[in-house]
Design a binder for these strands. Structure first.
Lengths: 201, 201
DNA sequence: GCGAGGAGATGACGATTGTCATGCCCGATC
DNA sequence: GATCGGGCATGACAATCGTCATCTCCTCGC
């Protein structure tokens, strides 16, 4: 019997996935959580063997949850199930120790098979997405450029960004300028769109 | 027997919802589509009585699909099932003839009951969301301000926006200025965030 | 010790943006 | 037909933004 934990913040989808897996006679859903920071605890007490993790979750995102599982409960295999096929997400997920990466666009029948393969120790990755991730390459952004860009997504003006990342306003503009150039954008709003699309935020 | 059509673009979620509804013995899933523009056709041939519609779909969004159903197949009751509790979405959904509005955050057990109520001719609306929609009021934006804001979300510079909506660059800035003031924002990026949050785009 | 190089800051610049006053055109209303 | 208001445009202005050259620290490697 494969003991599965489901981590997904939308209760309706969580319940629906559980019902989908309930149809399989070699799979048992032993835990359901709606927040990323409850994953490790629930996986331990329910003795899960596979963790099905959404990325967008409150508390802790699915990639970070996979990293914690890998370090604290390495016998639990993580399978990321997410909406967005951002190459950067796939890369970070694999680096975090996830064993599989599945899109919610994939047909429902594929889920149980993917769980079985991950449970058997194999890796499950959408081939097209893997190719895209390799072609995409890594983020060209410096760590500071990345931080400033993230702050720019939350705060409107350069002065606010500067206050939030503890830099001077001019330096913020310098980093933003670098990010804009590297991303081929024409202003910070476009740079944010591009970075978000590629999963580099 | 309640004959349900499921319209949801993410195949995995669509299949999971179908499996969830399959557990109910008075509900039958008679059609599944992944695009909004296939809803009316599928509902007609499958003789559905309730349409479960996601909002974010390619081809035609769920709200527009509900409007088409209401005019072409008025005997089919629409139930919107969506991720975002944006008050503007609820308002537009109801105006489009939808009979229910459910969030994916709601517990899975609620789905079958909501479908039964909608099928029986009742309305199903999350009370908290309804209150928020009433408190929120309607969008304060002019039709032109709305158009320009939408164009601003796609095109980066004022000149590009102007070309896209067939206005002069100065006029575009005037409308953006009005939208920024009405939304309490401090620049166009913040105005876009606020409008998107409230479902006014 | 010393040079290289990265992080951060500064100041200047031109371009873009946000704001405002003003004017024109046109359909609606009285 | 006069008036009003909305849609659209223009021009001017200050503030902000994007870019660049330059400077100071600090750290690392030799």
């Amino acid at each position: 019997m494969i003991r599965v934990l489901i981590a997904e913040d939308q209760a309706m989808v969580r319940g629906a996935l559980a019902s989908l897996l309930g149809l399989e006679d070699d799979i048992e859903v032993v835990a359901e959580v709606g927040r990323g920071d409850l994953v490790v605890e629930a996986a331990r007490t329910a003795r899960a063997t596979v963790a099905l993790l959404d990325i967008e979750m409150p508390g802790l995102d699915g990639i970070a949850a996979a990293a914690r599982l890998a370090s604290e409960l390495p016998e639990v295999r993580s399978l990321i199930l997410t909406t967005f096929g951002r190459p950067g997400f796939l890369r970070r997920a694999i680096e975090s120790g996830a064993r599989g990466f599945l899109l919610k666009d994939a047909p429902a029948e594929q889920l149980a098979d993917a769980i079985r393969e991950v449970d058997a120790g194999q890796r499950v990755i959408d081939p097209a997405l893997a190719a895209a991730a390799i072609a995409e390459g890594d983020s060209p952004l410096t760590e500071r450029e990345h931080d400033v860009l993230v702050a720019a997504a939350l705060h409107a003006t350069a002065a606010e960004i500067a206050a939030h990342v503890h830099l001077s306003e001019g330096t913020v503009r310098n980093y933003l300028s670098g990010a804009i150039r590297k991303l081929g954008a024409r202003n910070r709003a476009e740079a944010l769109r591009i970075a978000a699309e590629k999963g580099w935020l």
